[in-house]
Simulated scan of single mutants.
Amino acid sequence: MNSDLDTDTAAARALFQSLEGMEGLSRPEPAAAAKGATRLPGQSALIKLYPGVLVAVTIALASQWLAQHYGAPVMLFALLFGMTFHFLHQEGRCIPGIEFSSKAVLRFGVALLGARITASQILGLGLTPIVTVIVGIGSTIGLGAFLAKRMGLRSSFGVLSGGAVGICGASAALAIASVLPRGKDAERDTILAVVTVTALSTIAMITYPLLTAALHLDHTRAGIFLGGTIHDVAQVVGAGYMISPHTGDVATYVKLLRVTMLLPVVFTIAFVVARMGPGAAGGAKATVPLFLVGFAALVIVNSLGWLAKPVTDAANEISRWCLVTAIAGLGMKTSFKDLMTAGWRPVALMVFETVWIAGVVLVAVEFFT
Rank of each mutant, 00 (worst) to 15 (best):
G228E: 10
G42I: 10
V273C: 02
A270G: 06
D189Q: 13
V351S: 03
S101W: 01
G71V: 12
L80V: 15
A308L: 13
P346D: 04
G228Y: 11
G359M: 11
A34E: 11
Q43W: 09
F146G: 03
L127W: 11
G52S: 05
V259K: 05
A280N: 06
R258V: 00
T252I: 08
G359C: 14
K149N: 09
V133H: 03
T220P: 00
S44V: 06
G223D: 08
A286I: 09
C322Y: 01
I122E: 07
A11W: 00
C168Q: 04
G97M: 10
A173C: 08
D313S: 12
G163T: 14
L106Q: 06
G279P: 02
L210C: 07
F81I: 08
A193Q: 04
A33Q: 13
L127N: 08
A222R: 04
P310V: 08
E353K: 05
T118N: 06
A314C: 06
S26K: 12
A175K: 00
A270R: 01
F146H: 09
G277W: 06
S120M: 10
I269L: 06
V293F: 08
P41Q: 09
L256V: 01
P51Y: 00
L19K: 02
L215Q: 10
A10Q: 13
G158W: 13
S171L: 02
I137N: 05
F81Y: 10
A213K: 15
L143S: 11
Q17L: 15
I130L: 15
V365A: 15
V194A: 03
V159E: 07
K337E: 14
K149E: 09
Q68I: 02
M276N: 14
I230R: 04
V365P: 05
A32Q: 14
L362T: 12
A286N: 04
A234K: 13
H219I: 03
S101H: 05
F81E: 00
W306N: 09
A34P: 00
I300K: 06
V324I: 15
D218T: 11
T334G: 01
N2V: 12
Y253F: 14
F87V: 07
A204F: 12
F291G: 07
T369I: 03
G166H: 09
M332F: 05
I98N: 02
